[in-house]
Amino acid sequence: MKFRIYRYNPETDAAPCMQDYELDVAPEGLMLLDALLLLKEQDDTLSLRKSCREGVCGSDAMNINGRNGLACITPLASLKQPVELRPLPGLPVIRDLIVDMTQFFKQYHSIRPYLINNDPPPETERLQSPAQRAHLNGLYECILCGCCSTSCPSFWWNPDKFVGPAGLLQAYRFIADTRDQATSERLDDLEDPYRLFRCHTIMNCVDVCPKELNPTEAIGHIKDMMIKRMV
């Protein structure tokens, strides 16, 4: 199989370049990450992140043939050759396929991704009804791989000001949580032409999410809640 992989080491290279690789394997049954690890045996300078190798940790997010995804759950047989691999777009490259996700996590932290509840903690748990709990489905499963935010042009242009789909999905996860008491503050924080409203509903995030989540829908719900409290 043929591969074209983005190579860049800021310490030694003047500019990034694409390097061709060939691997003699039958693609059936293999995931892209398996192939990358075999390539790394050929050339141990090839750098990438990986951990769980089963789509749970979100470390090996990359741009695969022009589309963001997780290498570990992308079947090799599904890819057109040469398989072109690039780092996630819009983030600074540390080396090869490894990007600096500081900005991404800064936005995630900015939405205060934790329950805010000032009541004294109960003896056991803060309970929810099954229906209330069901509201969190499709929100809590995010693994923060960054595929969505780095496929969003609004995040490319304003990564310091626009929260991005991943952060906004998490913002709604806590806004929708009946145990959280900071709904109004959370909405205040997003009521701004940048933080939420840079989203123009192009749905790149929905298109690429490896967990098949829908940040656009969550953003729509946040907008609805803002309008509801405004009118």
């Binding site: 310091d160 000001k161 933080r195 409203f197 405004m230």
Partner: peptide, 15 residues
């Protein structure tokens, strides 16, 4: 500092 919080996003979006 992050200079955000202009508080007119929703209004403009609605308009």
């Amino acid at each position: 500092r992050v200079v955000v919080g202009a508080h007119y996003g929703a209004r403009d979006w609605l308009v």
